[in-house]
């Protein structure tokens, strides 16, 4: 187990290294960040001084070397735009994105798994066809468009919910402690969950259909077990592994790239921060963010793999 964990950590370190090199090369390929950051009216002398001040006159490998040296000392540097340390800047946005993502996944799971099982259990029923049509909509209609429709309907027309922003923040930097916070959270979470909902319904349905025809289900039925137990226990357990895998991946990618939803709903999360950093070529924020994302994915994958063991005794035996 220790060897396994160490292997994973080494892998993660390597991916993070490659990622940071890619970001440096990518920004370098676009051009000098100074040309985006600087006042266009700045004189030639001012421009040269600022380039020197930010070390952007050095060859790229030296800039990268400085960066790497600082990271090894735990310093990810300061944002070009805000001149405040990037790590606290990014982490201050984590709670906002975290609560949004978790709620979106919970919504997707709470509706997606039962609906998917039903659609797989009675594939010919009219209700199942309706569920499948819904799932197609869920992941084929663009998120930003649904987001705007949700705002138009619930906010502008009905005036039930706020159009964006985040409610008051309380303990742990989360906004789920007040009713106000929930009214802000609901629409973006719903918007974010639709794609996952569609995906989950399809996944669960396909798994259920397959498992329903398998021998152990037939045995279970022959044994005279009630249908509820057959589906709720034997079927669900057998479709568990792909669901957990997809869940993990989706959790990671949503946490890292909830950009569209965060933009439309003006949700002050990490996605919004990083997209704004990209448009201003704020390299320190971009690099630190993507390194954190790699770390996140590695952690989630690890967690997912450990979960397999809980779900499937055969994995544990290995």
């Amino acid at each position: 187990m220790t060897a396994f964990l160490l292997g994973r950590l080494a892998q993660a370190a390597l991916v993070m290294l490659v990622m940071s090199v890619l970001v440096f090369l990518g920004v370098y390929a676009i051009g000098n960040p100074i040309d985006v950051l600087i006042d266009p009216a700045a004189t030639q002398a001012m421009r040269a001084a600022i380039i020197r001040q930010y070390g952007l006159d050095l060859p790229l490998w030296q800039q990268y070397g400085h960066f790497l040296g600082n990271v090894l000392r735990g310093d990810f540097g300061n944002s070009f735009v805000f001149r405040i340390p990037v790590l606290p800047l990014i982490l201050s946005r984590l709670p906002a994105t975290l609560e949004l993502t978790v709620l979106a996944l919970l919504i997707a799971a709470a509706f997606g798994i039962p609906l998917g099982i039903w659609a797989g259990y009675r594939p010919e029923a009219r209700s199942s066809r309706a569920i499948m049509a819904l799932s197609t909509l869920g992941f084929s209609v663009p998120t930003f468009w649904i987001g705007l429709l949700l705002i138009l309907f619930f906010t502008v027309e009905l005036r039930w919910l706020p159009s964006g922003g985040r409610g008051p923040v309380g303990w742990l930097g989360l906004s789920i402690w007040t009713r106000e916070g929930w009214t802000h959270l609901l629409l973006p979470a719903l918007n974010l969950s639709l794609f996952k909902l569609g995906l989950l319904i399809r996944l669960v349905r396909a798994g259920t259909e397959e498992v329903m025809g398998s021998e152990h289900v037939r045995f279970a039925r022959a044994q005279g077990l009630p249908e509820r137990q057959v589906v709720g226990l034997h079927v669900l357990k057998n479709i568990g592994i792909p669901i957990v895998t997809i869940f993990g991946l989706e959790f990671g990618s949503t946490l890292a790239f909830a950009v569209v939803t965060e933009t439309v709903f003006n949700w002050p999360g990490m996605g919004k921060l990083v997209i704004e950093s990209i448009t201003s070529l704020d390299r320190p924020v971009m690099v630190a963010y993507l390194i954190l994302v790699v770390l996140l994915f590695v952690a989630i994958n690890l967690f997912v793999e450990l979960t397999y063991g809980l779900l499937d005794p055969r994995v544990r035996a290995r």
Binding site: S163, G165, T263
Partner: peptide, 18 residues
């Protein structure tokens, strides 16, 4: 001063009285 860079989101915030 609430920063809302997205144009559509800014208009929605006004129309909904935010």
């Amino acid at each position: 001063r609430r920063e809302i860079p997205n144009d559509a989101a800014r208009i929605a915030a006004l129309k909904s009285g935010q």
